[in-house]
Amino acid sequence: MTDQDFNNCVDNYSDGVYRFIVKNIGHEADAQDIVQTAFEKLWINRLKVEPEKVKSYLFTVAYNQMIDHIRKDKKDITTDNFEEVNKQTSYQSSSELKQILLRAINELNPTQKSLVLLKDYEGYSYQEIGEIMGLSESQVKVYLHRARLILKGKLIHLEKMSA
């Protein structure tokens, strides 16, 4: 990988990696640090990483960094925090349903949240998600389906509450 290839990767993947992390931990500065570390590692290992696997490599490194960060800081991602991030970035959907969904996702555990984010935002397959998160394909399927059902239950409950 040349420096040009690497900088292309920065242009193509940095937003996705950052979105995945910041939606997970809800802290912009920490998310930026994690992204920087991920690209630093990619630069160091640029000759080892296959070009077609660069994106998943970045997400894998970022995910592991994020898990370490969560373990170290033991920061609980509160609803307020998550909402604050959404407000700051001004990408929040106007629909009330989406608001409810974001709140519901925030209540999931980090693994379930990562599964949903990787699937919905990045469009990764079960297999790819499994590679990034160190899970088997069937585990990803089961966990993600469980997360969806939790979200469904929360959506029904919150819709009833708001109605």
């Binding site: 940095s14 937003d15 990696v17 950052y18 979105r19 910041v22 939606k23 930026q32 992204v35 970035t89 990408y91 959907s93 989406k98 969904l101 974001l102 996702i105 949903v116 984010l117 919905d120 935002y121 469009g123 969806r148 979200l151 469904k152 959506l155």
Partner: peptide, 10 residues
């Protein structure tokens, strides 16, 4: 339950 892809810029 599916999130709509959103754009966040680094």
């Amino acid at each position: 339950t599916v999130l709509e892809p959103i754009s966040i810029e680094y």
